[in-house]
């Protein structure tokens, strides 16, 4: 990792942090835990397409850790971390098989993030009852994923040339 790449990575992580902060200001608007826009996923998808999978993992995990420390609780760290890991695995895999665009990858990421959170919550609270939240969370993950995918796609296309020169 050269200095330029490291700087770009840091820049993307700071953007992710700002997005996390903005997200934390949005009040919960649906009575289902975990329903969020997932703005910071823009940074993860962007890093995945411009810098590559290892950088996307870095952006996502550092973001989760820092934003839980700053805006969340220990409980929220566990849920976010599980969601982030599920999302990363699926997004990296889908990008690799090259069948979907940024939107499809982002949809899968949004849905899996929510599924990961439910799985973590089911384990933490030792109850399968939380599975009731899966249908609304899947639908919400699709909606948020489309929005995040469109924004990420635009950013990737406009900035790819500049990031490319860094490599």
């Amino acid at each position: 990792m050269n200095v330029k790449k490291m700087t770009t990575l840091s820049l993307i992580i700071s953007v992710a942090m700002i997005l996390s902060y903005i997200e934390s200001l949005i009040p919960a608007f649906v009575a289902v835990p975990g329903v969020k826009v997932g703005l910071s996923n823009i940074a993860t998808v962007f890093a995945l397409y411009t810098l590559g999978a290892p950088y996307a993992i870095g952006v996502s995990l550092v973001r989760v850790l820092l934003s839980s420390l700053l805006f969340g609780t220990v409980a929220s760290l566990i849920y976010s971390l599980s969601g982030a890991l599920f999302a990363l695995v699926v997004m990296i895999t889908l990008k690799h098989i090259n069948l979907f665009s940024e939107i499809g990858v982002s949809i899968a990421g949004g849905v899996m993030h929510n599924v990961g959170q439910v799985v973590a919550a089911a384990l933490v609270m030792s109850t399968g009852a939380i599975a009731y939240y899966i249908p609304p969370l899947i639908v919400w993950g699709i909606i948020a994923g489309i929005a995040i995918g469109i924004v990420s796609g635009l950013l990737i296309n406009r900035l790819k040339g500049k990031i490319g020169r860094i490599k």
């Binding site: 069948l99 979907f100 939107i103 499809g104 849905v111 899947i138 639908v139 699709i142 489309i146």
Partner: peptide
């Protein structure tokens, strides 16, 4: 493919 994915998940 994206649309098919979204519909499948729905």
């Amino acid at each position: 493919a994206d649309i098919i994915l979204a519909i499948t998940l729905c």
